[in-house]
Every structure is written in structure tokens, then in C-alpha cells.
Design a protein around this nucleic acid. Structure first.
Length: 686
DNA sequence: GTGTCACCTG
DNA sequence: CAGGTGACAC
């Protein structure tokens, strides 16, 4: 509470801290898990004042709403006098933070984006205002987006966060108007940041390699960068609003109207999802309504209605999109898609530009750890950075490739894809805007656990246990890069179904066989044939065993003993080639052992016998019957012995000087073929 | 011209 | 084990 109050006094929104702290402490020692993250994210939404920033975590579409709400809130706080802050700070955490920072200027500015048309403005004036308003909104959206996606907001340690916030507060006061909004948004991130921090240890639980010192150092670094970013944003805000303020000075009543609109839209969209949330917020909402409603409906109903419609549309769209994404994710999970796929399913708009990229990447990765785990985020981000133009859909098929080749940007993969919910914004500032991720995961959580589930209380599951995928496990930033590389092994360690074994493997080998047939026909045959009709490793093994009986099988023999193979020129040639290779190895061995015998001083071929114990036999058996699960016929031993003698004699007679000296031997051996047992004819022999 | 084979290479 | 090549037979 102390820290809380102090922070509030400093004018820093600490709502997130207040709400998240318990969770943090709870999760700090535990392993980071998605659910926890989600819980952290969710808490603000459900336990906080509706007007705070419930929408901030939902979607880009709600940004305007968020701004409006904030403005209203600030306004209210202003109206309520300085005491509001102090009292609320102790009593209601959700309100104080906002009110603490609020000032009249800030209120006006904040309100400006949404509703500025002064009462009694002429129609033309209103129209012009609406245009102006839209332009203003766009700018504000961009700025907020930037702030939301601000890089370093996520990794602040609790202790350091205080310092950071204090600094931010000072800066904020300097640029008071914008700061109010800024502070909140960053805090929203901070909320997740805190969650992130708490989860870190857990995430790295598998390898407790991250010391606190390291974390602190990183957090500090990120804090600094975030501060820089914050200053930059403040400047931007000032620029925008100074311009706007000169022209449009907002009536406070409008703020109330807007706020009311926001209330309605917000409630309609989200309360249904979370009754608990509604209950908690009703109290606050009632208060606000009492104060503001009087002024609300006195002001330009028309504009407010338009605004209301717009906001509703935005919210509806955002919600719909979220639902779609959630269902996609769920369905993909049901299909047991690889983690990677799932990862990419929630990428959303991750657009980073220029110098901010790096920090952005880090922050965004951490930022969304709540929902999906850092690894996922980072990967998705990488993907978008590497190829911004690509839509997630484009990645759909690359998964397998990516999976096997770490070097390739894994991003290309996966993704079953979810369309980017909203068009990319063309703002001068394009930081990653990851909010959509939040909403999707929030909804997902709702779908999975129901609206009343306790996000904060979710059990911390062991990494990769009871999680949809290992990727969801949160990891420290340092490990993200590695993880993204490791992704390549996803197929292997994750879902590589044992079922992949037999048939699949065989099929994989098919190309081998088939490619040999240059012609389309052959390709078709091999492809369509797969398994039963094409040549598989099983067929190869069978051919090797047949070699014990026949070294020079005829085409007819082959066709007879490979009834399950759809023969064509390619297949036949392939089989012939196999036996050719078998012979090659066979004769090489024979020549080698014959020469060795000569070297060893063997003078009588009677001393050269081939038995099952002989080295020659072992070599041959190893080659043709590696599994040693086949009883080699005695006839083969005889043939082998004859062959060895032939080579010995030829070499002894120095016939090997003749380039074609082996031909005579081949001629002899080819006559020694015996019939292949009938059991080889059955396609299921092996 | 086509098919088969041995040989060589990777 | 596959691919390529040359020799050879048909």
C-alpha cells in the first residue's frame, strides 16, 4: 500500500501495480505460465474501473474508446477536486491512479480527440469538427499504439519500476496533458511487464540459469530505453495537442457524453463476457454516471450518437475478430497442430520500424508473454520484421520446412493464420501494436475457462505440461532468440507423432524412388501409388533378402515377387538398379576377400570356405540382412563360396589384368540363381 | 533407339 | 544407394 500511495501521489497510475502485485507475488516463485500471464492481463480489465482501460487490452479498435474513457475519468477527477485522489488512493485503487495525474489541461486534451464540438455549434462547424476529430483520433491512435507497444515497458522489475515510474511521472508532469494518457498506457504494459517479471523465474525454471542480477540488469536497460521512448512520445503528444487545442477547446460536458457512450459500448461488449467484471464495475460506473449523466444528454445527441455508432462498430469488429481468432486457435489446437502453427495464429500486427525495432522486439516479446509466452511472440515478431509484407497466410505451408531448417526464419512457417485483424496503420510511428494478442487470448481464456474463472488463481502448470504447446511457456528474453532457433525441432520434440513411423517414413523415401523416373507418368505413378503401389523401404529390404536367392532376377521374377508394386519402366529400372547395386557390393566383397586370401598366403581354395561364421558372410549378411532377422539359405553360402573361389582363381591367374576379367565370373554366378521361396510373393511378406 | 549392365562417383 | 556414363546386345 505504501508504494502504491507514493506512486499515486507522484501522479503515476499504479492501478496495474495494485492489481497485479498480488498476482506477481503469487507467481514470482512459480513458473511462468500463460494462464498466469493472462490472469495478469485480465485483472485490470475485470477488477478495475471500467473507465480505466479495460479496452486497452482488447484491441486496436478500442483505442479511441480507451482514450475517451481516460479523458472522462480525468475530467471527473478534476471535477471532484484534489481530495478525490487521496481518498480514492486508499479506498479504490482503480480510480486514484488516474485521478492523481489528471489536470484540467490534461482533461481537455484527452477529451479533445473524441468529442470537441462545442455546444451549439453550427452543422458545418460540426462537420468540420468531425473531420478534424477523425484526424485527431488517428494521430492519437498512433501515439497510443506506439505507447502500448513501447519496447521496454514490459521487463521492469517491481523495484525498478518504481524508479522508472517516478521518472516518468516527472516527465509526465512536464508534459502533463499527454502524460496522463501515456502513463496509463505504459502502465498497462507495465502490468504485463510486472507479470512478465514475475513469471520469468518460472519460465526459466527448466534452466535456472538466469540470476536476479542478470534480470535486473536487463530490466534496467529496458527501462532506460522505455524512458527514451516515452519522452519521444511526449513530444509528439504535445505537438499534436497544442495544435488542436488552439482551435478546439472542448466543453467538459462533451467528455461526459463520450464517456457515457463508451460506457454503453464497453458494457455491451464485454460485460456479457464477464459478469464478475460487470458487478465490480457497476459500482464505479454508477458513481460516474451520477456525476456526469446530467451533462451527458444535454449535449449534441446527434454527434454523440454518431460517435456511439462508430465506437460500437469498432468494438464489435474487434470483438468479432477476437472471437474468430480464438476459435481458430481452439480449432487448431484440436487438430493438434504443431506449436509453431499456433504461435503464428496469434501474431497480429507487429509492425516495428527503424531504430525502434530492436527494443521493440524485445519489449513486444515480453509484452505478450502473458498470453502466449515470450517465445511465440518473439518468433512472430521476427517473422513480421523479416518480411513485413507477408501476411500470416503466406506462411501456412512453410512450417515443415522451417521446422527442419533452423537457419531459415521460422516465421515463414506456420500459421494457420489469422488475418491481421486491422489494417496496418500508416502512422509516422509504427511500433508494434500487439494489443490484439491480448484480446484474443482473453477471449480464449474466457472460452476455455468461462467468464468467472479466476485468472490470477490459475494453477501454475509445469512448462509444457498441460499447455497447448511448449511454445507457450514463458521464457526470459535471453532465451527467446534461442528458442526461435530451436523451433526447428518442434516437429521432432513436440508433435512428432510416433505414428509417423512406418508408412510415413516409407512415403518420405518414395520421392527417392520416383524421382528417378523422369517422366510425368512415373511421377504420377509414384505419387499416387505411395506405399502399396510404389517402392518403399520395405520393398528394398525384401529385394535384399531375395538377393540371397537370386543375383540376377528377371523382370518377371521381380513382378512376381513384388505384386503390390505397380510396375512401370521406372519401377522396373529401379528394382533392377537395386539388384545391380547388390551385385556390385557382393562382387566387391568377393574380390576383396579373395585378394586378402592371396595376401594371406592361401594356396588351396579348399582352405577358403564360406560359413556363417566367416568374416565374408558377416559382411554380406550385414549388408543384405542387417536386422539379422532372416535365415540366410545355405545355398547362398555355397554360391558365395563359389564366387570367392572364382575370384581367387582369376586373381591368382592374374586374369584381373584384363579389364573385363570379371565378366567370366559374372557369367558363372548368374547361373547359380535359385528360385525365390513362394512366401516372398506375398505383398505382406515383410 | 532401347535396354541392360558394370563401373565410377558422391 | 542413387545418379551418371559408356559399352554392349538386341
Amino acid at each position: 500500500i505504501d508504494s502504491h500511495n507514493s506512486t499515486a501521489l507522484l501522479g503515476i497510475p499504479i492501478e496495474t501495480m495494485n492489481l497485479s502485485l498480488p498476482d506477481q507475488s503469487m507467481h514470482s516463485s512459480s513458473e511462468g505460465c500463460i494462464e498466469d500471464d493472462k490472469a495478469d492481463v485480465m485483472l485490470p480489465c475485470f477488477h478495475r474501473n471500467m473507465y480505466d482501460e479495460p479496452l486497452a487490452s482488447y484491441s486496436n479498435g478500442s483505442i479511441i474508446s480507451q482514450l475517451l474513457r481516460k479523458t472522462i475519468h480525468s475530467k471527473r477527477a478534476l471535477d471532484e477536486s484534489p481530495f478525490y485522489l487521496s481518498s480514492s488512493a486508499v479506498a479504490d485503487c482503480s480510480q486514484e491512479d488516474q485521478s492523481s495525474v489528471s489536470s484540467k489541461d490534461s482533461t481537455v486534451e484527452a477529451a479533445s480527440p473524441s468529442g470537441h464540438a462545442p455546444t451549439g455549434a453550427s452543422p458545418e462547424g460540426e462537420h468540420a469538427m468531425s473531420d478534424h476529430l477523425q484526424a485527431k483520433r488517428a494521430r492519437v491512435e498512433n501515439i497510443i499504439r506506439v505507447m502500448v507497444g513501447s519496447p521496454n515497458s514490459r521487463q521492469h522489475g517491481d523495484s525498478e519500476r518504481s524508479e522508472n515510474e517516478a521518472r516518468d511521472t516527472r516527465e509526465a508532469r512536464e508534459a502533463y496533458r499527454e502524460n496522463k494518457r501515456k502513463q496509463r498506457l505504459p502502465q498497462h504494459q507495465e502490468h504485463s511487464a510486472s507479470a512478465q517479471v514475475s513469471r520469468k523465474p518460472g519460465s526459466s525454471s527448466s534452466d535456472n540459469c538466469n540470476t536476479k542480477d542478470e534480470e535486473c540488469h536487463k530490466l534496467k536497460e529496458q527501462l532506460h530505453s522505455m524512458q527514451r521512448l516515452l519522452r519521444h512520445l511526449q513530444e509528439k503528444f504535445l505537438q499534436v495537442y497544442h495544435q488542436e487545442e488552439a482551435e478546439y477547446d472542448r466543453d467538459e460536458t462533451e467528455v461526459g457524453v463520450e464517456r457515457d457512450i463508451l460506457e454503453e459500448s464497453t458494457e455491451s461488449h464485454y460485460i456479457s463476457a464477464e459478469d464478475d467484471f460487470e458487478r465490480k464495475n457497476n459500482r464505479v460506473a454508477a458513481e460516474c454516471k451520477d456525476r456526469i449523466k446530467v451533462a451527458d444528454y444535454l449535449v449534441q445527441q446527434r454527434e454523440s450518437q454518431n460517435l456511439q455508432e462508430t465506437l460500437k462498430q469498432e468494438l464489435t469488429r474487434a470483438v468479432n475478430d477476437c472471437v474468430d481468432r480464438v476459435f481458430k486457435n481452439v480449432s487448431s489446437k484440436g487438430l493438434d497442430l504443431s506449436p509453431k502453427q499456433r504461435i503464428c495464429s496469434s501474431p497480429e500486427m507487429q509492425i516495428s520500424t527503424g531504430a525502434e525495432r530492436k527494443s521493440q522486439q524485445a519489449s513486444s516479446a515480453l509484452d505478450h508473454s502473458q498470453a502466449e509466452g515470450v517465445g511465440i511472440k518473439s518468433r512472430s515478431l521476427e517473422y513480421y520484421e523479416s518480411s513485413e509484407a507477408h501476411s500470416p497466410q503466406d506462411q501456412t505451408e512453410a512450417l515443415s520446412l522451417v521446422v527442419r531448417k533452423p537457419a531459415v526464419p521460422p516465421m515463414s512457417s506456420v500459421t494457420p493464420t489469422v488475418k491481421r485483424p486491422y489494417p496496418v496503420h500508416q502512422a509516422p510511428f509504427q511500433f508494434s501494436y500487439s494489443t490484439p494478442l491480448h484480446d484474443s487470448h482473453i477471449l480464449e481464456h474466457l472460452l476455455k475457462y468461462g467468464p468467472h474463472s479466476n485468472f490470477g488463481g490459475l494453477p501454475c502448470l509445469p512448462p509444457s505440461m498441460d499447455r497447448t504447446s511448449p511454445d507457450s511457456v514463458d521464457l526470459p528474453w535471453e532465451t527467446i532468440a534461442m528458442r526461435s532457433k530451436v523451433t526447428s525441432s518442434h516437429l521432432g520434440h513436440h508433435a512428432r507423432p510416433s505414428s509417423l513411423g512406418g508408412v510415413t517414413v516409407d512415403n518420405l523415401c518414395l520421392p527417392h524412388v520416383k524421382i528417378e523416373c523422369g517422366e510425368l507418368q512415373g511421377m504420377k505413378a509414384s505419387v499416387s501409388v505411395s506405399g502399396s503401389e510404389g517402392l518403399t523401404p520395405s520393398h528394398l529390404k525384401k529385394a535384399k533378402l531375395m538377393f540371397f536367392y537370386t543375383r540376377y532376377p528377371s523382370s518377371n521374377v521381380l513382378k512376381t515377387f513384388f505384386p503390390d508394386v505397380k510396375f512401370n519402366r521406372c519401377i522396373t529400372s529401379q528394382l533392377i538398379k537395386w539388384f545391380s547395386n547388390f551385385r556390385e557390393f557382393y562382387y566387391i566383397q568377393m574380390e576383396k576377400f579373395a585378394r586378402q586370401a592371396i595376401v594371406d598366403g592361401v594356396t588351396d581354395i579348399k582352405d577358403m570356405s564360406v560359413s556363417r561364421d566367416s568374416e565374408l558372410f558377416r559382411a554380406l549378411n550385414m549388408h543384405y540382412n542387417k536386422a539379422n532377422d532372416f535365415h540366410v539359405p545355405d545355398r547362398f553360402l555355397e554360391v558365395a563360396e563359389i564366387t570367392l573361389h572364382e575370384f581367387y582363381n582369376a586373381i591368382s591367374a592374374t586374369k584381373d589384368s584384363d579389364p573385363s576379367w570379371k565378366k567370366a565370373i559374372y557369367k558363372v554366378i548368374c547361373k547359380l540363381d535359385s528360385d525365390v521361396p513362394e512366401e516372398f510373393k506375398t505383398s505382406s511378406y515383410l
